[in-house]
Amino acid sequence: MSVRRLAPKEVQPESFAFTAENLAWAESTIAKYPAGRQASAVIPLLMRAQEQAGGWVSEPAMRYIGDMLGMAPIRVYEVATFYTQFQLQPVGTRAHIQVCGTTPCMLKGAGDLIKVCQRRIHADPFHLSENGEFSWEEVECAGTCTNAPMIQVFKDVYEDLTPEDLEKILDAFARGETPTPGPQNGRKSSEPVTGLRVLTSPELYDGSVVGTGAGLALAREAIAARANGATAAAAPAPAKPPVAEAVKAAGNADAEKPAKPVAPPPGGQAAGKTAD
């Protein structure tokens, strides 16, 4: 975090006003709050103003929203400078890249992503690229740590990135396209990168075990076995679902890495303890 200042006067637009659609939305947002508490709507309104104005909040926009909510402009200014999601300087016209630099992403290579940004956009954050199309910044955790490293572009997140993926994303934005958001290595949301390990039996999904009490019987068996002091049977190896190529590659990469101390599977541990 650093000192945040309004953009210089030359950059500020003459005036700001919501579009008809946004104005209607703003009025409905203000109406959500009790009379006399309209000022509570300042954050959503600033956010909408930022979206409308191409990703940043201008000084006229703050005054406009202050007038709309009956707040002194300094009060809006306080809010806009407090929350770092409000950009006070103009951002790239095509994309403003927010690279997460918090610990999980940092460990998974956010530094490389930042290097890409520095090379392709600008050496410093919050600066426009030469053609004004891009800008970047490092942000704190955006909440997709399982899919680290990630970037956020406006409302979309791009996860499981490699520097090459980021290059591709930047290329796509430069062409005027919007790349598909989400994990870029082919996995579905935040599923394990090595594939599912639990709830994998196909019969769980074909309806064949519904109502048969198979699960209950199994559980009873297991309890009885434990009571008898017998070692629990090792869990059957999960049937692997089809894995995307990229995931496979990642799994292979993991396998090739030097072995790290890995916690034994829960079943095995329980078995070991009972044996002792």
Partner: peptide, 8 residues
């Protein structure tokens, strides 16, 4: 309402 605290 003229003075305010900006930033954090």
């Amino acid at each position: 309402a003229e003075l305010g605290a900006i930033g954090r």
